[in-house]
Amino acid sequence: MSVFRAIRSIIPRRPANRSLFGDAMIFSFLALFAAFTALPLMYIVSSALKPLDELFRYPPRFIVVNPTLTNFTDLFQLLSNSWVPFSRYVFNTMFITLGGTAGLVLFASMAAYPLAKHKFPGSRSLFTIVVLALMFSPHVTAIPNFMIMSLFGWIDSYAAVIVPAFALPLGMYLMTQFMSQIPPALLEAAKIDGASEYRILWKIVMPLVRPAWLTVIIFSFQSLWSGNSASTYIFSEEKKSMDYALSQILMGGIARSGAAAAVTLLMMIVPITIFIMTQRKILQTMSTSGLKE
């Protein structure tokens, strides 16, 4: 009897208004949807392990028959022959990604706090502008951004990529929505105890909105890691990002098709790994960002 009780304690209880058949149907639908969603990722992994004869086989096969690591060895050989060390491209990418992400979290938090917890003239208009900015594609603002960076003299520098990343509208929107759900009584109690606005923000508000800024970090990291904006503003080869270096391999023709398949897989590994590690926080943020107190 104790074994059955242990099993029943592990299995979550089913709602009274739902049958076992209903649970089976929901699970089957979710499993089918998950398998369908995973198909592109499985195809990329399979293509990275295919030899050249399987890559150009017609009709193409979804699953690799003779897996090989030749594509990765060819890729590393191409990178080792570059006159700029590949480690330099990695450093540039990490510097731009970490700098832009840290700046976004800092400025989005400091800007969202007064919008969410202080009523001042024009606050609603500013938040409306932030919401409207979500509709604009980065391609729409590419020319104005280039003109502004050129006016500041930041062309061909890291600042031309890092500084515009501070103004990601989605970051400020999520932080504002989450901060607006914090009870005002909690902040009033901190003010009565003598806490300053900066201390309230970093000691009380930021720990409470942790899912929000973790989600902002993920979106910013993915955008800067795999984005090609660095090639627009940076012309010096030693300052270009890893995405630019690997994109040159993709343009190498049929002979580099295997290396190109390996490039696609390598560029996806880091963002997907980070997303898997923090997916619970992201889902929590998406499910509560539209709620009000």
Rank of each mutant, 00 (worst) to 15 (best):
A16V: 11
F33R: 05
F33E: 01
A38S: 11
P40I: 10
A48Y: 05
L52N: 02
L55P: 05
P59E: 03
F62R: 03
N66F: 01
T68W: 10
L69V: 10
N71V: 03
T73V: 05
D74F: 04
F76S: 06
S82G: 10
S87A: 06
N92A: 10
T93P: 14
L104Y: 06
A111G: 13
A112Y: 12
A112D: 09
Y113A: 05
L115W: 03
T128Q: 08
V131P: 08
A133T: 02
V140I: 13
P144R: 12
I148P: 09
I155M: 09
S157P: 15
P164S: 11
P169N: 11
G171A: 10
M175P: 08
M179G: 03
S180Y: 05
S196H: 08
Y198F: 00
R199T: 00
W202L: 13
K203P: 02
P211K: 00
A212F: 07
I217G: 15
I218H: 04
S220G: 11
W225M: 08
S226V: 13
E237P: 13
K239S: 06
D243L: 06
I249Q: 15
V263I: 02
V263G: 00
M267R: 13
V270D: 01
F275P: 14
I276H: 04
Q279T: 02
L283D: 12
T285E: 13
T285D: 14
